[in-house]
Design a protein around this nucleic acid. Structure first.
Lengths: 342, 342
DNA sequence: GTGAAAGCGCTAACAC
DNA sequence: GTGTTAGCGCTTTCAC
């Protein structure tokens, strides 16, 4: 029911204060505050009168005043390297609705370099966000800022290398992911596998590569050191690597990539070489970016568990600062056509 | 020079107030406020003393208190349909650094449906952002919310159809874009052109299509009505359309797409049909999403003028509410390999 | 140009 | 459980 009374309209001009609501409901401002913030047990006549008055006056709290008094800003900060990064974008889309439905507000900081990330963390902390979620860019070390603020504000680092042990950490269980990939390929009759990864010999990429090796051995598959290549995380790189790989005598049955972009280049190269995916060669990507479902054939990839990352991060923030813990979440292998036997 | 005095460290524990700065600098809180907010003319001894004291105490303003008193929140709100949308992501990456460098904070709202967009606009307005930038999702009509808040908060609509005339509007000059595309193709020796667009017969897409026709005629090129197709904005759609298009007798020299994703499907289909891009057929995309520079060959596309969109939007916000104006910005044709004669 | 003081709207303490 | 009241930290009159 849309209120269209004169009062509601007048109210929307100059936002009404809690005092007006209190007057209209015949209670004190304290009661109004308690009812509207849910800090009051019963839902009796008084509570309803207050809510009715608030609705009638089109009242909404003044967050500045509320924050000034209570030190709770009802905001969550998020720092990401770039909105163009598919992981960050996926996280953003998953996080915002949850934050908003809690009638909180999302404050966003974007920074690729370590310096910019530090800067954004500082900004958000000085805004006194109720919690801060940070997707560190590869290689950035934010431990100094984190340590400086971790006492006062719950900070959750998502993915990457844990460098500060005073913040919470939500990471992706890459080992499970790799186990799922290799197990799936073995099921499809694959016997030998190549591995193509991004350029930076970062902690994360080294770790993933190590897991690849472990899982390949565990599943009884084979690989070769000259089938394991590191290059840019670009289509062209995947393309060139593949051309070289398959130009040589003897080639793998499958190519596992540490990124969808590379996998895409691989698929293009295989096409150019006249080999068909998945019949001749199977291909698996990583991150389940939009490109994965757009290729022909569609690409099997590993989807980060965005919803669980969000819920765990917010849970850790709720728990408050001071008791840092680490949760590791298994991603989901999204099996599409590029890796299936047919 | 990094201050590491005992005071600075103690100060960083419990953030210091303007009163402590005033005491240390031997002035009143009013003077501190004036100096730090730049509302004071001279940069004399006093000003320097104040700044030095502030630095020493590691002081930063309490935005909540500042906002409560002055009604200026130092925040900019942005509403987008999805972070996965390449235009929104590009805008986000361009906007954030500018907002931040002004020591303001970006508040983000994400909503695909009209209802969610309205909701996010309401949230941000009730947070009293200093300005609101909205990328409306296709077909959404936000005029009602806009009208309701336009008096109090400067609102800038970016792109899409202008439905409220009480807000500012920054749009992309698609006509110039189309002129550049067709002119470029004509220069490359193209004589006949097909046009593939996204599904929704929205105002925007209809407009772009009309401009395509105008420009094709103006440049002396030809097209055919069965070469102008509307479908999903997906790779597969582009693929299927192309297969059908080029299966028929007689086909165009070039394909202009209203989206990079479609163009990508077109390129894959042409490859599958054994036709080479750009030798046999030229292809042009739209939006310059990351995919455009990742295809093989790289794709010519139209890049939205993100930086100018940002600067114009912020300029309009600075001008305040009440004098809505409309600026139209020409995008840039990024010529890559898919459209060049060789 | 500077300082003293009021007060923005709300919530937390406290008294009832 | 409810009302009264103080005061969060800042900006902005208003005197000087």
């Amino acid at each position: 029911m849309k209120e269209r009374s004169t009062m509601a309209n007048r109210a929307s001009k100059s936002p009404s204060s809690i005092l007006e609501v209190a007057t209209l409901a015949n209670v004190s401002t304290a009661t109004v505050s308690r009812v509207l913030s849910g800090r009051r047990a019963k839902d009796d006549d008084i509570a309803q009168r207050v809510r009715k008055a608030a609705a009638e006056l089109n009242y909404s709290v003044n967050y500045a005043a509320s924050a000034l008094r209570s030190d709770v800003t009802n905001t969550i900060g998020l720092v990401i390297p770039s909105a163009t990064d598919s992981f960050s974008a996926g996280l953003l889309d998953a996080l915002e609705p949850v934050v908003d439905s809690d009638s909180r507000q999302l404050l966003l900081g974007i920074g690729e370099s370590e310096a910019m990330q530090v800067d954004r963390v500082e900004s958000l902390c000085s805004r006194k966000v109720d919690g801060l979620i940070v997707v560190t860019s590869a290689g950035a070390d934010l431990s100094e800022v984190f340590d400086r603020h971790a006492d006062g504000i719950p900070i959750v680092q998502v993915g990457g290398r844990q460098r500060s042990f005073r913040t919470d950490m939500v990471s992706i269980d890459e080992n499970t992911a790799m186990e799922a990939i290799i197990g799936h390929l073995a099921d499809q009759g694959v016997e030998s596998v190549a591995y193509l990864a991004g350029e930076e010999i970062s902690f994360e990429s080294a770790e993933l590569f190590a897991m690849f090796h472990t899982q390949v051995r565990a599943a009884g598959l084979t690989t070769q050191s000259d089938w394991n290549r590191f290059g840019d995380c670009t289509v062209r790189r995947g393309f060139d690597c593949t051309i070289r790989l398959f130009g040589e005598r003897g080639h793998p049955d499958a190519v596992v990539c540490a990124d969808d972009t590379i996998a895409f280049g691989v698929m293009m190269a295989l096409h150019a070489l006249g080999m068909s995916v998945p019949e001749d060669i199977k291909v698996v990507g990583y991150n389940d970016s939009p490109i994965a479902s757009a290729t022909l054939p569609t690409m099997t990839s590993v989807r980060p568990p965005y919803d669980r990352i969000v819920s765990e991060s917010l849970r850790l923030i709720e728990a408050g600062p001071g008791h840092p813990s680490h949760v590791s979440l298994p991603p989901e292998l999204v099996v599409r056509v590029s890796s299936t036997r047919r």
